[in-house]
Amino acid sequence: MALDACTPLQLQQWQDQEDAWLRDTVRRHGWAVQYAAGAPPFAYTVGLYGFGHPELLVYGLDLQASAWVLNHFGDRVREGERFGPGRPMRLTGWSHRLQLFPFHDGEEPPVLGSAQRYYHRGPADPVPALQLIWDDSAGRFPWDDGYDLPGGLQPAPRP
């Protein structure tokens, strides 16, 4: 459904259904993964904040890879592990290294819109989040010389 072509009532009905799905998914699994197929595509968690952990955001991956990465972290958070900014790390079963950076979602509209709505937060006090930045096939991150993925695929984090 093209949301910009909806009537206000249709938009509210869509939002209500989305919120019901989100509540049910978080209740059953502990978190949900929201995916936006924009340019660039991105995905983020909703529910990790309920475990006392920042939500996680990743840009530039397809739906399957995004869900795999975020669910891998979600499983580890549910088991009590905590992640924060720091040195590059690897996930078993994935060829890329990752680095985590603080992400401030204080703009309107928010990037993590479903998470902000789920926790009743807004631009003045957004849900804490970390952005996962992944390397290219040669192990270079976007700030390294020779990084070979398209510019803008992984926007710089918003501290």
Rank of each mutant, 00 (worst) to 15 (best):
G122V: 02
T25M: 05
F141S: 02
D145M: 05
D144Q: 06
P157H: 10
P155D: 04
L132H: 06
D4G: 04
L9C: 05
E18Y: 09
R158A: 13
D19K: 09
A20Q: 13
A32D: 11
Q64C: 10
G151K: 15
H96N: 09
R82P: 05
P85I: 02
G152A: 12
L61Q: 08
L112M: 12
W31Q: 03
R117A: 15
V58Y: 03
A20V: 10
E108C: 05
W68F: 12
D19F: 11
R97H: 15
L153A: 12
G47H: 03
G38F: 03
H72W: 11
W143G: 06
V111S: 03
P41K: 07
N71R: 14
R97G: 10
E108V: 13
E55L: 07
G151P: 10
G60R: 08
Q154V: 00
F103L: 06
L132G: 04
L56F: 14
F42T: 02
L98H: 00
Y119W: 15
S137W: 12
W143S: 14
L48C: 08
A2F: 09
R78E: 10
P150D: 14
A129M: 03
L91D: 04
L153Q: 13
V46G: 01
G74Y: 01
R117Q: 13
L70D: 01
A20K: 15
Y147P: 04
R87S: 14
D24H: 14
L91T: 01
G106W: 01
F42G: 00
Q15C: 08
Q34H: 15
A115G: 08
G139Q: 12
A67V: 15
R87L: 14
G152W: 07
P126C: 07
G146E: 07
R78L: 13
Q116R: 07
D135Y: 00
G52I: 10
G30N: 07
V33G: 02
L112C: 08
A2D: 14
A129Y: 01
P142W: 03
P128M: 06
R27Y: 11
D16C: 10
V77L: 12
A5H: 13
G80V: 07
Q13D: 11
G30C: 08
W14F: 14
P159F: 14
L56I: 06
Q34F: 12
D24K: 15
A129E: 00
E55D: 11
Q99D: 02
Q154E: 06
G113Q: 04
F141C: 06
Q34S: 13
R87W: 11
N71M: 09
Q15T: 12
Q34E: 15
R90K: 15
R117C: 06
A20W: 09
R28H: 12
L149T: 00
R28S: 12
G60E: 10
N71F: 00
Q34G: 06
F141W: 07
W134K: 00
Y147L: 05
G106H: 07
P109H: 04
N71Q: 14
T45A: 05
L57S: 01
P159N: 12
L153T: 08
R78M: 09
P155F: 00
P126D: 02
S95V: 11
W94V: 09
G50Q: 08
L91A: 05
E107T: 13
A5M: 11
S95P: 13
P8F: 08
H120C: 10
Y147I: 06
P157M: 03
S66M: 09
E55N: 06
P157E: 04
G30P: 05
D75G: 14
G106K: 05
V69Q: 04
Q10G: 08
